[in-house]
């Protein structure tokens, strides 16, 4: 695809270096004394290097609990990192705006749209007299009108609320937006409306997206590049075409073969046994070794190195089988 090639010349906008985010769960006094439970560490994000260029959409896929939402939140600065660094526009600090999954829970039910947007505009330093016209401009950009200004979130449908969520993110004039499962709470007909809206914003304003989704069809449609995450680590990354046509990691292959596709007859499926292990005590070596159909001895001992995949210079896989 042409856009993907021209993207290579674009400057990096967001970069993470060795990013880690751990969560610590301290058991209560009784549990410590009576059962001798120790403090548990959940390694949600465990050493991630990512790069997002200007005007690019990076799709981040993985199953629930793999740490993809945590990664998105660390990048915009909602969580401080445990280790590593986020660079935004060349500066060592997190940045960007966020669109959340649940448009019902992410808007304050007691604030009108005017208040929701006004708060962001105030933070941006827009003078009071300009806020109304700016709010209307934002609403019109996301397909709503000035009539919606004084309504409360409950008066909107799910799709309209997500539009308000998008307008709120745009109010800060970000160059980068993390969209965390932006359409998974919506019906399919509304899903397509929101996806088209996001695509349009990128075309017009050149915003970059980190699109977090478990829906591979959505990721394929929206992304220039894709990163596959498993238990806190990236296992494969590459251009959308290369990764979907030539998946190198056994996990990516299983994931791709598990997607139900419209009208396509059942192809040979790779069935994974069991479920994702807990991130509290991830397996040593390769994280995927407990479910991998092609496991070798080395996979249980040493963390796999990054290996380039032929055909696409940006396509990298972390797997011993390819080394």
């Amino acid at each position: 695809m042409e856009a993907a090639f021209s993207m290579k010349d674009n400057l990096p906008l967001v970069q993470t270096v060795g990013l880690k985010r751990y969560f610590y769960a301290k058991p209560g006094f009784l549990a410590r004394v009576l059962t001798g439970q120790k403090e548990r560490t959940t390694k949600a994000v465990d050493g991630i290097d990512l790069l997002i260029r200007e005007g690019e959409t990076l799709g981040l896929v993985g199953e629930s609990g793999c740490g993809k939402s945590t990664l998105g939140r660390v990048i915009v600065g909602l969580y401080p990192p445990t280790a590593g660094q986020v660079f935004y526009e060349g500066r060592p600090e997190p940045g960007g705006q966020m669109i959340f999954q649940n448009p019902y829970a992410s808007l304050n039910p007691r604030h009108t749209v005017r208040q929701i947007l006004g708060f962001c505009l105030e933070k941006r330093g827009v003078p009071l007299e300009d806020r109304e016209s700016e709010s209307v401009r934002l609403l019109e950009r996301v397909g709503l009108t000035a009539l919606h200004l004084d309504q409360y979130p409950r008066q909107f449908s799910g799709g309209q609320r997500q539009r308000i969520g998008v307008a709120r993110a745009l109010a800060m004039q970000p160059r980068f937006i993390v969209a965390d499962e932006p359409v998974s709470a919506l019906d399919v007909s509304v899903q397509a409306q929101i996806l088209n809206l996001l695509e349009g914003l990128q075309e017009e304003m050149g915003v970059s997206f980190l699109l977090i989704s478990h829906d591979l069809a959505v990721v394929h449609h929206m992304s220039h590049r894709v990163a596959v995450m498993y238990l806190g680590k990236i296992v494969e990354t590459g251009s959308t075409e290369s990764l979907f046509e030539n998946p190198a990691h056994p996990y990516t292959r299983a994931l791709l073969s598990a997607i139900p596709r419209l009208g396509k007859t059942k192809s040979a499926r790779i069935r994974l046994q069991g479920a994702v292990p807990s991130a509290v005590d991830p397996p040593p070596g390769c994280r995927f070794q407990t479910r991998c159909p092609q496991r070798k001895d080395i996979c249980g001992e040493i963390e796999p190195p990054p290996v380039a995949v032929k055909g696409d210079p940006g396509h990298v896989v972390w797997c011993h089988l390819r080394a």
């Binding site: 591979l216 499926r269 069935r271 479920a275």
Partner: peptide, 8 residues
Amino acid sequence: LDVTIEAQ
């Protein structure tokens, strides 16, 4: 459910 579990 996740997509690999859905398939199972």
